[in-house]
Amino acid sequence: MKPDAEFLFRLADAAAHESLPLFRVPLEVDDKGAAAFDPVTEADRRAEKAMRDLIAAEFPEHAVLGEEYGASGEGGSCWVLDPIDGTRAFISGIPVWGTLIGYMEDGRATMGLMDQPYTGERFWAADGAAWLDGPRGPSPLKVRDTQALSQANLFTTTPRLFKGSALDRFLALEGAVRQTRFGTDCYAFAMLAAGFVDLVVEPGLQPYDIVALVPIIEAAGGVITTFSGGRPEAGGDVIAAATPALHEAAMALLASD
Rank of each mutant, 00 (worst) to 15 (best):
G112S: 08
K49I: 03
E42S: 02
F59P: 06
G66W: 01
I84Y: 04
E28A: 15
L22Y: 02
L65T: 04
E42I: 00
T110S: 13
M104I: 06
V29C: 04
F23Q: 10
T87I: 10
T99N: 02
W79F: 10
F37Y: 15
P26T: 00
E105T: 10
E18M: 11
D53T: 13
T41F: 00
K32V: 14
V40F: 07
I91F: 08
H62F: 01
P21F: 00
A63Q: 02
E61T: 12
A57Y: 08
S72P: 00
V96Q: 03
D106Y: 04
E68M: 01
A89D: 15
D82N: 09
P83H: 01
K49C: 00
D53W: 06
F59C: 08
R108N: 09
F23S: 09
E67Q: 04
P60V: 02
E105F: 05
I94W: 11
E28I: 12
P83D: 09
I101R: 03
G33C: 10
T41H: 01
P83K: 06
M111A: 07
L27E: 15
E61N: 12
G33K: 03
E58F: 05
A57N: 11
G33E: 05
D38S: 15
R52G: 01
H17S: 13
F23I: 12
D85T: 01
A14T: 12
E105D: 15
D106F: 03
L81G: 11
G86D: 05
L20N: 03
G93P: 14
V96P: 11
L65H: 06
S19A: 14
P21G: 07
Y103R: 02
P83A: 11
E48M: 06
L100F: 01
R52L: 10
E58D: 13
L20F: 02
F37M: 11
V40I: 13
V25D: 12
E58V: 12
D53G: 04
E42T: 07
G66S: 05
F37S: 12
I101N: 04
G102H: 01
A109Y: 07
P83T: 09
E42L: 11
M111W: 07
F59L: 12
A50R: 09
T99P: 02
P39N: 08
V29I: 14
A71Y: 04
I94E: 13
W97C: 03
W97L: 07
V25F: 00
T99C: 06
S72K: 09
W79L: 09
T87P: 10
G66Q: 10
E18G: 06
R46S: 13
P26C: 05
I84Q: 08
I91W: 01
P83I: 00
L54S: 09
P21Y: 09
S92N: 15
L65Q: 09
R24L: 04
V80A: 09
D106E: 15
D30E: 15
P95F: 08
V25R: 12
A109L: 04
G86A: 06
K32Q: 09
A16I: 00
H17R: 15
G107S: 04
L81F: 11
D44G: 05
A34Q: 13
A56L: 01
K49W: 00
T87C: 11
C78T: 13
G93V: 10
